[in-house]
């Protein structure tokens, strides 16, 4: 029976809610493995685990509960160990590294901020900055929308102007939050965001961060900002060097299939 690993934290073991379950259908009960001052949050691994919605949610939920009380090193989704014994060995072998990471992240949480453009507002911004665009737009409008070619020409210019605005607005966000953050990490660029920023902040500084983001939202109405947190420090745990220690004899699976 292989073991699913959610995260690693420090002893003493956190108090887990009665009946806390993780991945699987039916959801497998979350257990604690303790070795050498470290605690791994684990459960039995379901056969044929897939990255489905409920599994991702279960993973995040287990970590969120622990993260509410203390720092935890969140595993990436889908980390499987041969068995409990192997998890224990990993804790022992890499105790120093894990403890260092836990020290570094102590008292801190991650907030993820995604920004996208409010369409109408950003059009106002680019029109304001480029009077010739505004003039062209109004000329088209006066001509009942303009010809196909005129529409295309205007649309292309506006699209480019809006696109050129993206890094500018991404920088606005970064500058707003950077002074409050212990660390900032650009999140993976995925569809739908002009910037995807994760910040590591002291738990106590969370309100300050939220205020700063809210202020930015008010002063830059072209920005649609979505804040999520507090989260376990997903973006600020260090990946272990795959070449560093292969003694455990289990190959790292490629992250992408």
């Amino acid at each position: 029976m292989s073991t699913y690993v959610y995260g690693i934290t420090r002893s003493p073991a956190p108090h887990l809610r009665e009946g806390l379950t993780g991945v699987g259908d039916p959801p497998r009960p979350v257990r604690i493995l303790q070795r050498d001052g470290l605690v791994a949050l684990v459960s039995d691994a379901p056969e044929d685990l897939r990255p489905k919605r409920r599994e991702l949610l279960a993973h995040q939920q287990v970590l969120a509960e622990v993260n509410a009380e203390r720092v935890v090193l969140p595993m990436r989704f889908g980390s499987l160990s041969e068995d409990d014994g192997t998890v224990g060995e990993v804790l022992v072998e890499r105790a120093e590294h894990f403890l260092e990471r836990l020290d570094t992240l102590e008292g801190k949480v991650e907030y993820n901020i995604k920004a996208s453009h409010d369409q109408e507002a950003v059009l106002h911004v680019v029109m304001a900055q480029q009077p010739e665009l505004r003039a062209e737009s109004e000329a088209n409008r006066a001509a009942g929308g303009g010809s196909y070619e005129q529409k295309l020409a205007l649309g292309e210019k506006v699209a480019r102007a809006v696109q050129a605005r993206e890094p500018v607005d991404a920088a606005l966000l970064r500058h707003a939050v950077e002074p409050l953050a212990a660390e900032v990490s650009e999140g993976p660029q995925s569809a739908g965001w002009l910037t995807n920023l994760s910040v590591l902040v002291d738990r106590e500084a969370a309100d300050e961060l939220l205020s700063a983001v809210e202020e930015l939202g008010n002063s830059a109405p072209q920005l649609d900002l979505k804040v999520n947190g507090p989260l376990p420090p997903y973006s600020f745990v260090e990946k272990t060097d795959a070449s560093a220690d292969a003694t455990a004899g289990v190959r790292a699976a490629p992250a992408a299939g």
Binding site: M75, V90, G187, S198, Y234, E238, G249, V250, R251
Partner: peptide, 8 residues
């Protein structure tokens, strides 16, 4: 994101 351990 999150921790990746090569033994897993």
């Amino acid at each position: 994101r999150g921790l990746v351990i090569d033994a897993f």
